[in-house]
Amino acid sequence: MSNEVSMSISVKEASDLSDQGNIDRRKPDYLDQLEAEAIYIMREVAGQFERPALLFSGGKDSITLVRLAQKAFAPGKIPFPLVHIDTGHNFVEATDYRDMLAEKTGSKLIVRYVEDTIKAKNLKEPTGKNASRNWLQTFTLLDTIEEFGFDACIGGARRDEEKARAKERIFSFRDEFGQWDPKRQRPELWNLFNGRIHKGENVRVFPISNWTELDVWAYLQREGITLPSIYFAHERECILRDGRLLYNTPVIEKDPEDQIVTRQVRFRTVGDMTCTAAVESSAATLEEVIAEITVSRISERGETRIDDQQTEAAMEDRKKGGYF
């Protein structure tokens, strides 16, 4: 029964796609090239793997992935589930959007909670200033991969985000412990992706590797996609800490030096609340957001992510441990 309902929604969604058709397809623009490449990669995943999954966070990159997957498999449904590793510290706007999108696309949604991993494995939760469950997600992710036997996990990472990501393959091989070995990456030639693995290993696939942050924004605008409201300017009570604005939520442990302020802000990335900072802004539309980011002299992660600032190779080390 429930299956039938979601199918018909998926057909409607496919026709939704055709409403965005006023693009001049005669002149291939770089966005068309990036889109075609990403769709090709999505289809390689569907063609080469038995049990793929799309890692969905509710952020703009994974929203872009879902749109690309819809286009890749229209008029059919997306042939893999959306998987969210929920730290329990996510913005409610993002998780609401996640649920709405899964329903709208008729996709199966799997949510696994870091909280449960902490209990089951008796993990010690980080405490104190700047404590974050971000790193703990790795345990939940690896358990989820094992639970469902996923052989490929599609993620929204981009190479322009961070210097270790700038080095990663589009089909990024992970051993049975989920580890990335940057010194022994498989050659990746032309568009011939090699997804062969042994049982227990898996491949992380990054279809938008070659997109920049601005490409993603421009694509969302071109496709007329509605984003979670936190991406646009709104009043919010924030913690002003070391020059950054964090959402004033009980899950962030306060520090005597913290100041509580109310500001007009938007989010440039949406991740775990404990490590994602807001930016002051008055941009109310995608067009205005793009205009602000175009002239910004600070990178996306530099402006918004607390987790990368800790050591020079924070991302590389996390990836070696099995992170996204």
């Binding site: 322009d160 270790a164 940057p182 010194k183 990456q185 920049t212 190779a313 590389e316």
Partner: peptide, 21 residues
């Protein structure tokens, strides 16, 4: 800017390709 891996920085050489946009 491109030599982003720990071992690359330690040795001052490039080991794998880096993509910049």
């Amino acid at each position: 800017l491109t030599d982003g891996l720990r071992s690359e920085r330690e040795q001052g050489i490039t080991i794998d390709v880096a993509y910049k946009y």
